[in-house]
Design a protein around this nucleic acid. Sequence first.
DNA 1: ATGGCAATGTTTCATTGA
Length: 257
Amino acid sequence: MKLATWNVNSLNVRLPRVLDWLAANAPDVVCLQETKLEDAKFPRSELEGAGYASAYSGQKTYNGVAILSRSGCVVSDVETGLAGFDDDQRRAIAATVDGVRVVCAYVPNGQSVDSDKYAYKLRWCEAATRALEAELARHPELAFCGDLNIAPEARDVHDPAAWEGQVLCSPPEREAFARWIALGLKDSFRLFDQPPKTYSWWDYRMLAFPKNHGLRIDHILVSEALAARCRGCTIDRNQRKGEKPSDHAPVVAEFAF
DNA sequence: ATGGCAATGTTTCATTGA
């Protein structure tokens, strides 16, 4: 099984690139974030034509998440939002695909550590912890994927000194990430030797991509049962190149089944 | 020199992202 996560920064704009990427990479499951589309406008039929079924929860302008699965996969128990957390923003969707529980999240950005949005981010992360705990109790094979908007360690940041204490890197955010790890989840990227300075997001400004001024904030966290079957995790930085790229690159994990 | 890009709707600017 090949599982991917990709913040596409508008599925409307990115659909041609997404379709090309699906054809070239043939993933089994793809978690999308920032679709920025109301459900009525989701390109379900275009994706069906490319061989993928869609589960989605979106809104206009902001947020929006989806789980694509290759035609023929058995999909069940689609749930939107975080259990027990009342939220106007469409940031979470889960589905069971061929027996693997896939939780797709677009964690709030937080804007800056002194903002209301940061407090909302921390509350959201805590609700995610509780929801994941309940999911793990029911589903031993679970993947928590998405734009988690947290760079967990200094090596996930191009300039750790400049980012120290800033949003995406602050201790409370990293503690939230550590609580997901404490549930038994593993960062699939770190299960393997990786090239240094590998990131998943680069600012559109300041020539950040050519200078590789990035952050690793998109993640595939896997339960212990899935980690045992994980055979690799890579970031497809080529998708940050060319015409109209998202500012995020896809993260791809492969499993031995 | 402290900006700079991209997408969206409130559209010819303001807001948000990270």
